[in-house]
Amino acid sequence: MPIFSFYIINKAGGLIYQKDFEDYKANKLMVNEHLRLGGFFHGIHAIAAQVAPVAGSSGVEEIEASTVKLRCFQALTGTKFFVTASPSQASLDVFLSQVYEYYADFVLKNPFYELEQPIQGCDKFVAHLDALVASLSA
């Protein structure tokens, strides 16, 4: 079970998209808990750059624990994409840049999508995301 969950948070720290890919957790998180996690990561991201002992640090790019790994990509607009996976899962960077491309193509170019708002009704985006995850898990 390589990829667990995928999140997109807007530049204010609000969760605009979230999806679980595996029934990896016995006690699944509720929508509110996902919202909180998204906001929480936004905070960690900002604080990490503040405690840097060297100049010019970005926010969090990667976090690893014994059972899970988190990888984050921040677009220039401040939108953050992050994915959680098992620590052995490779090529999460490629995954995130590919998802960013889908986001640009199927969300941002959707005339009904309002910037910074939750992503809904973008079926093509979801379909491509699912296919990408399936290809990585195979």
Binding site: M1, F4, S5, Y24, K25, L29, E33, L37, F40, F41, G43, I44, A48, A49, V51, A52, P53, V54, A55, G56, S57, S58, G59, V60, E61, E62, I63, E64, A65, S66, T67, V68, L70, T84, S86
Partner: peptide
């Protein structure tokens, strides 16, 4: 707060935080 966060995103509630990396350092 990392402890709580890792516990929530980890599949079995036991994620021991090991490191955090940015473009300029690793903690």
């Amino acid at each position: 707060s990392m402890k709580m966060f890792m516990k929530q995103i980890s599949p079995d509630d036991s994620g021991d935080f090991r490191y955090l990396r940015t473009s300029a350092f690793k903690l």
